[in-house]
Amino acid sequence: MEYGKDYGKPEMMATAIIREIKEGDVVFHGLASPTPMVAMKAAKALGKDFTYVTLSDGLDHDWSRPPYFASTLSENTYIGSVATFGLDEIFDLFASGKGDIAFLSCLQMDKTGRIAMSVLGGKDYDHPKLRGPGGAGSATLTPVTKRTVIWKTAHDKRTFVEHVQFATTSPAIDKPFTVITPLCIFRKPAGEKYLKLDCIFPYTTVEEVKENTGWEIEEKDVPVMAPPTEEELAAIKKVDPNNILAFEF
């Protein structure tokens, strides 16, 4: 599959998200999460067997109904569910160690995986330049989720900074922590403190990743992730005829 012709950054990110999900996983994404929503529907379309929980109370909803806007709170992730399972139940499920992946995002992040969702700039927390939307459960979920995965549809020095001033949440030292961007994947292995460049996507270079990251990247030679397969691209198209995946790009 050829970059720019058969697929672009949105499809590559969605594919990377699909590949994170393992058979049997219990997987959550929050509100305002169109990119993981489309990827998870596509993973279902590919026949991957995992449990899909969302903020709209739906559990394993009918993934074949196309989303028609980017909100991930609507009936689209509710209709055709086999059960209801509300956010309070999801928090309890994850806090008791039964949650495998939470797909979360951020406004800013640094090399230790400290995430800003609350405030940016200004004098302090109570006098911010930008009052952000808040952690939306990420402070609760990150420390207790087996494999927290951050997705961020921008990769630049404004987002990936040297130091996050106010951390809404940060990774648990004893758990792996993954960051998927339009250019690459960073991973912090369990027991370690810093994010490492894990792999890059086919259309970029380690140099380009370095130029767009505000912390120092020591890795020189990393694997290139295989581009989306024909089947993966077909699944993404099938579940998302309205191209909601493009919304965040």
Partner: peptide, 12 residues
């Protein structure tokens, strides 16, 4: 509650 470790929200 579960979670919240590693968040600056707790101190503030």
């Amino acid at each position: 509650v579960g979670g919240m470790w590693g968040s600056d929200l707790v101190d503030i």
